Amino acid sequence: MRVTVFGCGRWGTFHAWHADHIGHDVMLWGRPGSKNLQELQATGRNAYQEIPASVTLTDDLEKAVRHAELCLVVVSSQGMRSLLERIRNVEGAAGKVYVLCMKGLEIETGKRLSEVFCECMPKTRVAVWVGPGHVQDFLRGIPNCMVIASSDAQVTELVIEAMKSPLIRYYYGTDLIGTELGAAVKNVVGLAAGMLDGFHYGSLKGALMARGTKELSRLVEAMGGDRMTIYGLCHLGDYEATLFSPHSHNRRFGEDLIRGIPFTKLAEGVHTVRAVMELSKEYHVELPIARAVYDIVHGGEDPKTVLTGLFLREQKPE
């Protein structure tokens, strides 16, 4: 199968490697002037891996779209809409199958990424791909489990069949609301976990995990999803990779914030928490952990006071 990966950062490059590894004809697209693409073109690798010579690198969007039968979109959540608005103008773009491999919400609208996709490219087949795992671990041959979800079961089946691999066991997702919210908001909980690490309060992560799943399950239910989805791979199952791993950008952002160290890599939770607070207002669901992260990261409030306040709230039934 011909596969195009849109986005040549850490995860985009891994997805290109993985698709090539399982036998597909792969093209990897990066925007013109992308430093990531320039590095791959000049050296054949990035900080994490080598890119196979059989993977075609390009900054030509039309060429990338025309190449593909299956399109893996691996750009930042906030940059997805503008990319799709360009892709949809390419002849034949609507006939492809698209897989959104990011975790986040659109800040301006609070919309899930599949909702943004359907606005930009209506009546086009789309799935989301979420779940635990780090590039570094996959490249060492450590397998993991992930979820492919779509509102169309045939699309889910097509994507899983195309991407089946000894490295990844896929599960079929049927609840797009819970799957996408769970994947996005676990990054917010990751920020809080990193802050706890910064204060050497790691023993509080257990309570953070228990309450994080609880509060998010209420929001998912209020939005029409299945609250139990949060206890699966999209959220709780991804906590180790996000709340504990040294590879987690969100955890590291939180820790470095407390330590006063600038963090320059992408931590999606920083953006996502703004959209989450809008959803909290819209659906009248209290989200104490998300509120605490928002108040610290965007409100400039004292991290120690806010974080310890989370664990000293009034007593009530669990």
Score class of each variant (00 low, 15 high):
Arg112Gly: 03
Leu287Asp: 09
Leu204Gln: 09
Met195Ala: 05
Gln49Asn: 07
Leu287Val: 14
Met209Asp: 12
Leu57Gly: 12
Trp11Tyr: 09
Val126His: 01
Phe263Tyr: 15
Ile258Cys: 07
Asp295Val: 03
Leu191Phe: 03
Glu106Phe: 03
Glu278Tyr: 09
Glu215Leu: 12
His284Ser: 15
Leu105Arg: 08
Arg81Met: 09
Trp129Arg: 02
Ala183Ile: 05
Trp29Gln: 00
Gly190Arg: 00
Asp137Glu: 13
Arg252Pro: 01
Thr58Ala: 08
Tyr170Arg: 06
Phe117Asp: 00
Ser82Glu: 13
His298Gln: 10
Met163Asn: 04
Phe6Ile: 14
Thr109Trp: 11
Met121Lys: 07
Ala94Leu: 06
Phe138Trp: 00
Leu191Gln: 01
Val128Gln: 05
Asn250Ile: 07
His15Val: 03
Asp197Pro: 07
Glu215Ser: 12
Leu287Thr: 10
Thr242Ala: 06
Val155Ile: 14
Ile87Ala: 00
Glu278Asn: 14
Lys35Met: 11
Ser76Ile: 00
Gly309Met: 09
Gly44Ser: 09
Ser280Phe: 04
Pro143Val: 04
Gly299Cys: 11
Leu176Trp: 03
Ile258Glu: 03
Glu108Gln: 15
Val26Met: 03
His67Arg: 05
Leu279Arg: 01
Ser280Pro: 06
Leu208Pro: 02
Met27Asp: 02
Gly224Trp: 12
Pro288Thr: 13
Cys234Pro: 02
Arg2Asp: 12
Glu314Tyr: 13
Gly30Ser: 02
Thr213Pro: 05
Val75Arg: 02
Ala149Met: 08
Thr156His: 09
Ser76Tyr: 10
Tyr170Lys: 09
Lys281Phe: 04
Tyr98Gln: 04
Arg125Asn: 10
Gly182Ile: 09
Met121Phe: 02
His271Ile: 07
Gly206Gln: 07
Ser76Glu: 10
Gly237Gln: 03
Leu61Trp: 09
Asp238Tyr: 13
Ala162Glu: 14
Lys186Met: 07
Met146Ser: 11
Thr229Trp: 07
Leu70Lys: 05
Ile296Met: 11
Asp59Met: 08
Gly224Tyr: 11
Phe253Met: 03
Val293Met: 12
Ser280Val: 10
Gly237Cys: 05
Leu266Glu: 14
Tyr98Val: 01
Gly309Ser: 10
Val273Glu: 06
Pro52Trp: 13
Leu84Asp: 00
Leu113Asn: 06
Leu84Cys: 02
Val128Asp: 01
Ser114Leu: 05
Thr308Cys: 05
Trp29Pro: 00
Arg31Tyr: 10
Phe311Trp: 10
His298Ala: 11
Leu37Ser: 02
Ala53Glu: 15
Ala64Gly: 09
Glu91Trp: 00
Ala184Lys: 02
Glu278His: 13
Val273Gly: 05
Tyr283Gln: 08
Ile168Asp: 01
Glu85Gln: 14
Ala222Val: 07
Lys316Tyr: 11
Ala210Gly: 15
Pro122His: 09
Ala184Trp: 02
Ala64Cys: 09
His21Glu: 14
Ala290Lys: 06
Ile148Met: 08
Cys8Glu: 08
Val293Glu: 13
Leu37Ile: 03
Tyr283Phe: 15
Arg252Gly: 02
